[in-house]
Design a protein around this nucleic acid. Sequence first.
RNA 1: GGCCUUAUAGUUCAAUGGAUAGAAUAAGGGUUUCCGGAGCCCUUGAUUCAGGUUCGAUUCCUGAUGGGGCCA
Length: 540
Amino acid sequence: VRFSKLNPEQTANAIGEALMQSSSVLQSFNVVKGFLNLELKQSVWISSILSHQAIPSFPKKEKVMVEYSSPNTNKPLHLGHVRNNLLGSSLANILKANAYEVIQANLINDRGIHICKSMLAWQKFGQNETPESSGMKGDHLVGKYYVEFDKHCKAEIKTLIEQGVAEDQASKQAPLLLEAQDMLRKWEAGDQATIALWQTMNQWVYDGFAKTYKQLGVEFDQYYYESNTYLLGKDLIEMGLEKGVFYKKTDGSTWIDLSADGLDEKLVLRGDGTSVYITQDIGTAQLKYNQYACSKSIYVVGNEQDYHFKVLFLILKKLGFDWANGLYHLSYGMVDLPSGKMKSREGTVVDADDLMSEMIQTAKEKTEELGKTSGMSDEEKTRLYHTLGMGALKFFMLKVDPQKRMLFNPAESIDFQGDTGPFVQYTYARINSIMRSAQAEDKTIHQVPSAIRASEVQLIQTVLAYKQELQKAAQSYSPSIIANYLLQLAKAFNRLYNDVSILKAIDANERAFRLHLSALTAETIQHGLSLLGVNSPERM
RNA sequence: GGCCUUAUAGUUCAAUGGAUAGAAUAAGGGUUUCCGGAGCCCUUGAUUCAGGUUCGAUUCCUGAUGGGGCCA
């Protein structure tokens, strides 16, 4: 507009005219409110889809680490962990599809006062109960004793208060708590009996987690254990002191002043030389880099730790590590339920294992209601219910922008209508059905169709957009982009194939073209769903 | 108290600074022949408030208010 010295309408018209003359792919153009709209010839769309390869593949270029899950070993996984795991593993898939070499890491918090609490309660009240003897999943068993500890500890505190001890004192003096702290000291001193019990109970938990992970469909290339890493980082504090990044206070504790960066002063080493959380995170970050030299490292951690990661990354940069620029905190919001917030104290936590089996059970009921499983073997049905139940769960959780707090409604997620996983899966199954019944046909396109419908152009455009969406998802670390794209694609397909005339009175050539388009759509859906960790059922 | 984050139909979610803010669900209406009606079509309905930047703001900036979190 500045160049032409004309108003936007006139400028657009002039450009449009010029393009019409010089380009062979334009059908027409029009100008609305200063927007120049170019209409491409249908042949452009037709030929672009015919030469299109739905699934791009590239050579590996960079290494990236995705750390997620990172559970504590004192209780089983819950709904919040599910979002974490799904985000992490889906992100790993998306990055792989964008040619990154991905290392999926899991940093397990296997030490500390919390696991000592479970151990102590088991010692006192457990009567040698094991996963085998009780039939309980190991993580649930250990979780049970964590709750048990809490119960007894509270009772002790109550007694103390009744004896006249002040409340804040009482909560520190409960005999059980003191005993747990003592156990932690023994653990740190390497006491054999304590270590043995710790190993046994942790192993129960790991066996339990393994089942949960398998059901969720996540896996890891590298496990880190805090029991191995909790002493790391002290040498880097030393180094930072020499560089003048940190300073000592008179009590001997080491700090960093981040007030110039809009943050506070932060303790990095206590006066007695013991670590704080961030100390070991500094050390672990270096350990990871030394081991893999990833150009990017992503931490999938809830948004309550936003501040922690801001500080951590800043410290690493100030220590002079170039690789600190490749660190990213994928922060995600909490998951709410229709019944309200999850609060462990009120027992409203939704257990991950329970949730998954409920989803699968609901998938079964819904599908049986519709009575379309006739002719399927029991094995096929079981697999289908799993595919649908887990697909519903994953799709629903990944559809939402990670950053935002979300509301998980199990009933709504598994509905076959609406913006759900099963709806996308249905579309895939439907296309498969179409392809099956056309199996025997000659699907060669001898001649490019001369005209196609607007709804076909729309579907073609959507299919073609996939690569861009994939890139966007990788750049913004957001699986929700893929999920929303898949909904759009499924809708575009269903809309097109509801047009009765498309099924009738068409010549073999047009038919072949549409089958080609359908096959590409199916391929794209399958690829997209797999990035979300969702299976595509051949039939449903 | 300081800091971070969020605010869109009744509800749950979308929208590289761009056109008439999209879906889904709920409510109401429609879809005789159809390789899958678990679909498709129509109707009703929304940007928290007050300023600012811009030709143009749901989007960026400032402030207020509500939700969530972190730190003391």
